[in-house]
Simulated scan of single mutants.
Amino acid sequence: MWRREAPHVRAALLRRYGQPDACEDAVQDAAEAAAARWPLTGVPDEPRAWLIQVAARRLIDRMRAEAARTRRERLDAVREPGAGVVPPVDDDTPVTGADDTLRLLFLCCHPALSRPSQVALTLRAVAGLRVEQIAAAYLVPARTMTQRLSRVAPSPFVTLNQAVAVAMAHGPDVGLALLEPLLADPAMRRHHRLHAVRAHLLELDGDAHAAAEHYKLAARLTGSLPEQRYLNRRLARLTSDS
């Protein structure tokens, strides 16, 4: 039944809320809830409606938590401007091989990945926590966390990561070509990370005007104040240099 209903649940959430990563997490949450409850209460008369309702509730809870976190960040920024903001590493500063842990941390926190994926990957790869420990911190079953970490490898956001890696090896124009299919995806066009990566590659390619436009768009689309500040700093540096 789950194989039959899962695509419909996923499509309903994506149509209403967008945010592919968050919707996929909510779908998995609904599956876990069904596996725990249905053997005790029986399969409901409308299983698809039940799954959509549970998944939507979980997704809304996460969205509210994220919105509350963003509000706290904005209030803190007003009360103490500059407090708790770590300056970004200058892109022109050479990275040596002296500290592989720092390099690994930067890779785990790549802007092409979602915030939950960044944190989970950092806890797994840098801090060395087991999947069970990370799952406990997120208050989700270990199987859900395993799936979440695995999805980082087949999601559209991996294409963003690949585009950056390819651009470093073969030139920004090749990386930009990899991003073209994502521009046809309505959900990805509304995601700030696509425009942030595209802006970075356009900047490397020497197209300052187009890069500035995508930095502006990425800054408008992100709900994270630190990310917005970072993008605006990149924009300001780009416009001052030109």
Rank of each mutant, 00 (worst) to 15 (best):
R124G: 00
A67G: 04
A184E: 15
L104G: 00
L123K: 11
R115Q: 14
Q147M: 10
D76P: 01
P94A: 13
V95W: 02
Q118V: 08
P47E: 03
S155I: 03
P116I: 09
A31W: 12
L121I: 02
R58C: 08
M145E: 04
L179V: 09
T222K: 07
E132V: 12
A163N: 09
A33V: 07
D241E: 15
R237K: 10
P116C: 07
R15Q: 13
R72N: 10
P87F: 01
A125W: 13
P94E: 12
Q228K: 15
V197L: 06
T222P: 02
L129K: 14
A153K: 12
P226E: 09
D207Q: 11
R190C: 03
S242C: 10
A6I: 06
D185G: 03
R229C: 06
G128I: 05
E24L: 13
R37E: 04
V140F: 02
A6S: 12
A22M: 13
A49M: 03
L202W: 08
D61Q: 15
V86M: 04
A163H: 07
S240T: 13
H191K: 04
A56I: 02
H110Y: 10
R74I: 05
D99L: 08
S224T: 02
R229S: 07
L225A: 11
L51W: 08
C108P: 00
L176R: 06
A212Q: 09
D45E: 14
A208W: 00
Q118E: 08
E73L: 14
L121E: 02
P111R: 14
A36N: 12
A31P: 01
A49G: 04
V85W: 09
A120K: 01
H170L: 13
S240C: 06
A208M: 01
C108G: 00
A34C: 01
P111T: 10
M168H: 12
V43T: 12
E80P: 00
T159H: 06
L204H: 11
V54W: 09
H191E: 14
R148Q: 11
G97S: 11
L231V: 07
R4P: 00
A11G: 00
V43Q: 08
W2V: 04
R48D: 02
M168F: 05
L102N: 09
S150Y: 12
A112D: 10
V152I: 15
V158F: 14
A218M: 01
R57W: 05
Y138K: 01
A22H: 06
A163V: 10
A120R: 02
Y138L: 02
E213D: 15
A31R: 15
E5L: 15
R64T: 07
R71G: 01
V85T: 09
A135I: 04
T239K: 10
H200G: 03
E73T: 05
M63A: 10
A169C: 06
L231C: 08
D76V: 07
A208S: 11
L123I: 03
A127Y: 05
T96F: 04
S240A: 15
S150I: 07
Q147D: 11
D99Q: 11
P186D: 05
T144V: 06
A199D: 07
M168I: 02
S150V: 11
D76M: 07
R37L: 01
D205F: 05
V152H: 08
